[in-house]
Amino acid sequence: MKTKIKELRARYNLTQEDLAKKAGVRRETILFLEKGKYNPSLKLAIKISLILKTPIEEIFSFSNKELEDM
C-alpha cells in the first residue's frame, strides 16, 4: 500500500504527532501508515481524509498485485 500522508502532512504543516492527536490514534500508527505497513480501518481512513481534506482514494493506493491478493 502506498500513501500520500507524508506529503499532505507537509502541505498542511502538520507533524505526525499533530495528525495522531487529531485522528485520535497513537503516533506509531501514523508512522506505520506512512510507511504503508498498516492497513487502516475505513473509519480511520475517513478521519484522515477529512483532516487532510483529500479524498481517500488519493491518499491510499494499492498496486494491482495487492488488489488481486486481497
Partner: peptide, 9 residues
C-alpha cells in the same frame, strides 16, 4: 498525551 490504545494496538 496520546491515546494508549487505538485500533492498531
Amino acid at each position: 498525551q496520546f491515546p494508549e490504545k487505538d485500533e492498531r494496538t
